[in-house]
């Protein structure tokens, strides 16, 4: 090594200067990321400032709002469970198998993600009332099962599921993509059929993904408004869920009640998501 090198401090791999502090970088990313967290906190704080315990009590005292809370919790849970039920096999298929036309299925599944939710509701309405030989789908279903779908409770679940399931499929596909296929292959050599390898080896590893898919689809169902309004309507004590309650209260000038219900949705979302995540963390350990 030459003297010049030593003078510059490049001898034996020394950089010749001390690197600067990491604080500016950490401050910048915290500021950028934190701005979004602040926005959400500000939104909730504004809602809280606008309302009072009396408004909450008044809102909760209304039987139609209590009905909406119950229907919201039930429909979101059914929709989330249905979404995971469908998303698990579909995500696995798309992750593990190459087949002709897979790109088309990929594209079709993404449609509910990119389309305005209102369009999904409109499409559901058209699907159930399209003229077919022997009557439309709604009539046929009613004849066979006696169950009314459009503008009834099943429409709420179907509208939520149609959108939420797409998000669950994306989550499950990424989950299976991240699970090494090698363990599944070894299970096959140990005597498993493919279904046994899936249930005994792969699915237990996908637990966190399942919890995430359940959480995302539940949250997505809670926030769904457009397709419910179009396909299920917003009939009080029948198809009213919390998102439509906000709309209905606003439409009659009850801003305080609308804000109180909005905060109830925030609280419901935080409680359910918190419980599911806690459960996922504990079981996944």
């Amino acid at each position: 090594m030459s003297d010049t090198g030593k003078a510059k401090g490049t001898d034996r791999g020394w950089p010749g200067r001390r690197v600067g502090s990491d604080w500016p970088f950490l401050l910048v990313i915290t500021a950028i990321g934190g701005s979004y967290v602040l926005l959400i906190v500000a939104l909730v704080a504004a809602d809280l400032a606008y309302t009072s315990p009396a408004h909450f009590a008044a809102a909760l005292g209304k039987p139609e709002i209590r009905y909406a809370i119950r229907l919201t919790l039930i429909s979101c849970t059914i929709s989330a469970l249905l979404s995971v039920w469908v998303a698990t096999p579909l995500g696995y298929l798309l992750s593990r198998f190459s087949f002709r036309g897979r790109w088309l299925i990929d594209t079709l599944i993404d449609i509910p993600v990119v389309l305005p939710p209102l369009v999904i509701g409109l499409s559901l309405l058209i699907l159930f009332h399209l003229r077919l030989p022997g009557g439309n789908l709604e009539q046929r279903l009613q004849d066979w099962t006696g169950i009314r779908v459009t503008y009834a409770e099943p429409a709420v679940v179907l509208a939520q599921f149609a959108v939420a399931c797409a998000f669950a499929v994306q989550t499950m596909r990424v989950t299976f993509d991240q699970i090494d296929t090698r363990a599944e292959q070894v299970a096959l050599t140990l005597g498993c059929r493919r279904d046994q390898a899936f249930f005994l080896v792969t699915l237990p590893q996908a637990w966190r993904g399942l919890v995430a898919a359940l959480t995302i689809s539940w949250a997505r169902s809670l926030g769904e408004f457009g397709p419910i309004l179009v396909f299920a309507g917003a009939t009080r004590m029948r198809t009213e869920v919390l998102s439509t309650t906000v709309f209905l209260e606003l439409s009659v000038g009850q801003l305080e009640a609308a804000v109180a219900v909005s905060l109830l949705m925030v609280a419901a979302a935080m409680i359910v998501l918190g419980i599911v995540r806690l459960l996922g963390t504990k079981v996944g350990r």
């Binding site: 090494d180 090698r182 363990a183 292959q185 070894v186 299970a187 096959l188 050599t189 140990l190 005597g191 498993c192 059929r193 080896v201 237990p204 590893q205 637990w207």
Partner: peptide, 20 residues
């Protein structure tokens, strides 16, 4: 034959133990 029917004990390079 399917892998399950061959009666082969296999240890892959990355071992592929079942994490759960």
């Amino acid at each position: 034959w399917k892998p399950a029917d061959r009666g082969v004990g296999y240890v892959p390079q990355d071992l592929a133990l079942f994490p759960m």
